[in-house]
Design a binder for these strands. Structure first.
Lengths: 202, 202
DNA sequence: TTTTATATTGCACAGCGTTCAATTCACCTG
DNA sequence: CAGGTGAATTGAACGCTGTGCAATATAAAA
């Protein structure tokens, strides 16, 4: 039983979030349970509910953390890469992250925000941060004439890669006999960038 | 209380499937319930479980039906369209179906087949049927030199459109300020087909 | 020390999927 | 037609789930 002297409010929040992330990573969204999180931190269910209001908000905060982790993962991988290689790193990094953190990644897309409940600011912010990393790289590669379309094009390219990644982890590609999903996605991205006059080699 | 004289085994199966589809359409995967289906058909939960073994199999059978509905939806829409228009119809039809049958469409991708449980034959078959419709149209448009890659390219194009559609219904595009997701997806598809030397006008 | 505010609990509730002994029923046999 | 048989169907039990809330425990203030 947790005493209030053990952890301050913020401390308790991140304690729940840390263990919540762990439960999500182990069990996946379908088997995620606030009760299990409570058990692990040695507090009762009521406390978890009191801190986050409801399970959906807890899941969304976990997802926000996943987005941050993901952004950092991509930035790290970009490291010293240059030119076309940076784009490939982004695509491959997208796939690698999803595969390495399968359950965390899936939870982002398996969770539906209930009607009438608004998305927490943190989730929107972290999502935009990830998009920002990619948008920056896309803008670098595009010619000046395409600058106005860069944001929209970035969204479209992310959607393209996302679709391939979702089909890989969801088993659709396995069913269709597709061997190297990441290469396919990369090919589509390069194609589009070329079509827009991007300054990268073939 | 259902008497066995009321419905034969097959009759009962499709009764469950019909009402199951309805519950799924109304409530979505997250709130789908075998008990609710049982209530609607006037049988007990045990009967539903007896016919389908477990809820996952029932969901997969419902999803198989959704795939069939989807294939027919696309074939109808292809109607008298010709050339490039057929490709646009496929892309737009993908989006329209998903939007019109939001919960049924989402259920396909929200449901994860539990480990150790194999996919029923019907689901795999209906999924391939849908892919077949699209593969046929892609093959028609591609030059003979690309025939060998047609199947893989088809899978990639479906993934591309799927990614855009998922982002639309999941709210990602709204967050990013993307206005016309279907047009974006269509642009990507046309780009790729052009890059492969497809015989369609710009 | 007593009061006050609130963090925390633990139970109740309604729902879920799954299991299974008991029951009901349709049909076959004599 | 009567009795037996096997399968269909039930309904309760079990262990989960998220949520709400009155009661309690506790730290801080008076």
């Amino acid at each position: 039983m947790g005493r209030r002297s053990d952890h301050g409010r913020e401390e308790l929040e991140s304690l729940i979030l840390d263990n919540g992330r762990q439960v999500m990573a182990e069990s996946g969204y379908a088997r995620f349970s606030a009760r299990e999180v409570a058990k692990r931190i040695g507090y009762s269910v009521g406390t978890v509910m009191h801190v986050f209001g409801n399970v959906d908000r807890l899941v969304m905060e976990i997802n926000a953390r996943t987005f941050r982790l993901w952004s950092e993962w991509l930035e790290e991988r970009l490291g010293g890469a240059e030119g076309r290689a940076r784009i490939i790193v982004l695509v491959q990094g997208y796939f690698d992250f999803a595969q390495t953190h399968r359950n965390l990644w899936s939870a982002i897309y398996e969770h539906r925000v209930p009607e009438g409940m608004e998305m927490p600011e943190t989730l929107a912010a972290e999502r935009m941060r990830l998009t920002g990393v990619i948008a920056r790289e896309v803008a670098t590669v595009l010619p000046a004439t395409e600058a106005a379309n860069a944001a929209e094009l970035t969204s479209s390219l992310i959607a393209t890669v996302h679709g391939h990644c979702a089909f890989m982890l969801g088993g659709t590609f396995a069913l269709l006999g597709v061997a190297r999903p990441a290469d396919l996605a990369a090919a589509r991205v390069i194609e589009t960038l070329h079509a827009r006059g991007a300054l990268i080699d073939a």
